[in-house]
Design a protein around this nucleic acid. Structure first.
Length: 429
DNA sequence: TCTGGGGTCCTAGGACCC
DNA sequence: TCTGGGGTCCTAGGACCC
């Protein structure tokens, strides 16, 4: 018999900051901010930093004075560390139930429909305590019959300390449920962003309750099919089942904002070579080939005269060969490069990914099997050397590593758990 | 001076084919 | 000279997510 859908969302609080605090217990209850690459803007803030009025995405240069004034500790993002902590949490959750969807680095959905639980909020608090004890990261847990409501429940759990980190919409009196939904602004609903929120408000919809009571036809008119689904989900009707067995990636992108803007073609070439090699490596690691490749470049979007360009091409023969990808994109850059622009950011895209094992010799003979085998052997050798001697030891000559386009990380914390040279050291006196 | 990076999905127009 | 519709692919861009 099929069980009625039931989800728990496990959402890590201020995840990057919480990871940094694991190794810096002195920073508990202190304002802490993690900055994006180039130390550009705030991507994670402790509650104390939020209380100082530092918004998500706050540009660091505008807040330097505030940081100094309130002795805010800042870190450059350390994604290797966060990825490692994330995997540990997932591994712990898997012992709770194998029916888990890893939604992002700091969020997972669990399918509770087949677990024998009576008091869901109490169950949530218990799971929260286990994660806190074994990993040390505080989480918020929301439980409901749809993912959208589970997300809202976790927000409610986070917002109101009385819930002790877990809130459930199951067996809740309608009046309480409505009051909770009424308290959530429409822009905090999963799927409502900066464009849809004003549209909904103009239609008189200001809260999650307003949206839950919307006519589905009207929601569809305003937002499309997603609108209709959002209304259903807010009423507890599941439209998005647990996604298990993660589908393989549909696209891979590697992009970088330059350390400083540039008008030089060779700098863009070098960025394409480095990012192309990184993207192709990720492709091979996942056992995939790309049928379309491309790149984009843009000027600084915060400066007047902002422009962006993107180019892509479809290949006759799917590839995972770094050299092949880099050569094609650098050639394309040569055709389309516009001098006298101040380039700020560039990225390499790989799309239309197919499993490497499905590559078959094309009937028309486009695919040269021998050449493919040779390219594959070359890439295996490249990856083997880089995995043995360290990332980026062997690279394409076009990737000029000395150049100043490399991003800056002034204040990254040590890679405590992902680099032998940066392990934490305990001294016994 | 200094404002992130990595994804997914959808739309829409034009080319091209039948 | 005037006249079509449906389907798919390609390309570009937008909206949203964390």
């Amino acid at each position: 018999m099929a069980h009625k859908p039931l989800f728990a969302l496990i959402d890590c609080n201020n995840f990057f900051v919480s990871c940094e605090r694991l190794f810096r217990p002195d920073l508990q209850e202190r304002p802490v901010v993690v900055l994006s690459s180039n130390d550009g803007c705030a991507v994670s803030r402790s509650n104390e930093a939020k209380a100082l009025g530092i918004p998500m995405g706050a540009p660091a240069f505008k807040y330097r004075q505030l940081f100094a004034q309130h002795r805010v500790t800042t870190f450059s993002a350390n994604f290797e560390l966060y990825g490692d902590i994330s995997r540990r949490i997932v591994s712990l959750l898997t012992t709770v139930t194998p029916r888990i969807e890893v939604y992002s680095v700091d969020e997972s959905f669990l399918d509770l429909s087949e677990l024998p639980i009576n008091d869901y909020a109490a169950w949530g608090r218990a799971v929260r305590a286990i994660i806190l004890k074994h990993i040390g990261v505080p989480v918020s847990i929301g439980i409901a019959t749809s993912k959208t409501l589970a997300k809202l429940a976790s927000e409610i759990a986070k917002r109101d300390e009385n819930h002790q980190g877990a809130y459930s919409f199951i067996h809740i009196p309608p009046a309480e449920r409505d009051a909770q939904l009424e308290s959530v602004p429409v822009n905090d609903i999963w799927g409502v962003g900066r464009r849809l929120a004003p549209k909904l408000r103009a239609d008189g919809i200001g809260s999650a309750l307003g949206m839950a009571r919307m006519r589905p036809q009207r929601a569809q008119q305003l937002i499309g099919i997603h609108g209709r689904q959002m209304v259903a989900e807010l009423n507890g009707v599941c439209c998005h089942p647990l996604a298990r067995d993660h589908d393989s990636a549909k696209s891979i992108m590697r992009g970088r904002t330059f350390g400083e803007d540039t008008a030089k073609q060779h700098v863009l070439e070098s960025a394409i070579a480095t990012l192309g090699a990184q993207a192709a490596f990720a492709l091979r690691r996942q056992g995939l080939l790309a049928r379309r490749i491309g790149f984009f470049a843009n000027t600084n979007r915060h400066k007047p005269g902002y422009r962006s360009w993107s180019y892509e091409e479809t290949l006759l023969q799917p590839t995972a060969d770094s050299g092949d990808i880099i050569t094609r994109l650098v050639k394309k850059l040569d055709e389309v490069f516009i001098p006298s622009q101040q380039y700020h950011r560039l990225g390499v895209y790989l799309y239309d990914l197919v499993g490497a094992e499905v590559l078959q010799t094309d009937l028309l003979g486009y695919i040269d099997g021998h050449a493919h085998d040779k390219a594959q052997a070359r890439m295996q050798a490249l990856d083997a050397i880089n995995s043995k001697h360290g990332k980026g030891k062997l690279y394409y000559a076009a990737a000029d590593l000395s150049s100043k386009w490399q991003p800056k990380h002034h204040i990254r914390s040590p890679r405590y758990v992902s680099n032998w040279d940066e392990l934490p050291v305990a001294r016994i006196a």
